[in-house]
Amino acid sequence: MSVVSAETPVWAHRTPRKRLLLWAGWLACVALFVWCWERMTQRTIWAFVWDAPTAAADIGSRAFPPRWSYMERLWAPLWDTINIATLGTLLGIMMAVPLAFLAASNTTPSRLILRPVALFVIVATRSINSLIWALLLVSILGPGILAGILAIALRSIGFIGKLLYEAIEETDISQVEAITATGASQGQILTYGIVPQVLPSFYGISVFRWDINIRESAILGLVGAGGIGAQLNSSLNMLAWPQVTLIILVILGTVVVSEWISAKVRHAII
């Protein structure tokens, strides 16, 4: 039996030490924020900032109505944009799948050499945005949709590779064990024990990435990698705001449609 203390115990949400730490943490965060803000706005010209509402109103008045007749010059770039996203995703998948099996700790053939290499490739391709890849590839291959496709593919490797290797690592070990107990070879364990388990996530990941790639390929043209972004760039340079409005509406429409398709497909798989 517990001993009942003489005084009524005081209930506190947190111990004094914890409270102190919490306050110190918040203070540090606020201080860091203020310092960052100061550093960041060092070179900001505030006159522009205060002038922004007028500028916005000005652009807004010139951007409407959109120039609908420009649409006939957008169909071909739009088709290119969709091709960049689709072919880029397919190419990315082809490279990401073997990489994922090399990177997953339960399927990798060599823990010391191949796995770290595969993980590095996945992180490196994932950290660098497709626009940067496009910038790089345009400077190497010249402008065109090939650079766009490769840029999308490279960025997709990291994304698909990471999610897929995580899915492989999460497979149910008892199913693998049961297949092993039948005397299956290692290739058979892979195709019967692991592949069926990761297939649904594989489809989901691929369609999801395709959806993202549609968005990304729409702007790759800004740096010369083909697609509708090139039209956006030239319209912006000419300050042709009604055309800009139309292009943005087209991009938004495409994004909405691709998101709808991807949601439908993912729903059908699960």
Partner: peptide, 18 residues
């Protein structure tokens, strides 16, 4: 410990993998 996402038939046939 069946392979959940395969058909019943495939699961039975997986006994022949060896």
């Amino acid at each position: 410990a069946l392979v959940e996402r395969l058909t019943v038939m495939e699961n039975v046939l997986s006994g022949r993998l060896g």
